[in-house]
């Protein structure tokens, strides 16, 4: 159960981080944030994506959800 929950949680959070990457670019395009903020946000959200998506893979593989 624990792994199943973790898989879902990391899955959702990884999607949020990917959406954050896109949102940063969108806000920069709209002129709401400066270039430096956009690039830093994109970088941090990207790191979050790789950590969370990898975590989801690991949790999914080890846990009962992997079937």
């Amino acid at each position: 159960m624990k792994h199943s929950f973790l898989t879902r949680l990391t899955g959702w959070l990884s999607l949020v981080s990917l959406a954050l990457c896109l949102a940063a670019a969108l806000f920069y395009f709209l002129g709401r944030i400066p270039e430096a903020t956009y690039k830093l946000t994109f970088l941090l959200a990207s790191i979050a994506w790789f950590v969370l998506a990898t975590g989801r893979k690991i949790a999914g593989k080890d846990g009962p959800a992997a079937g």
């Binding site: 896109l22 940063a24 956009y38 998506a53 990898t54 893979k57």
Partner: peptide, 16 residues
């Protein structure tokens, strides 16, 4: 893991 993110790099890059 990287594939969806690489696609986002394309889309975000063009938008920016």
């Amino acid at each position: 893991v990287a594939a969806p993110w690489i696609f986002v790099v394309f889309v975000a890059g063009a938008l920016a």
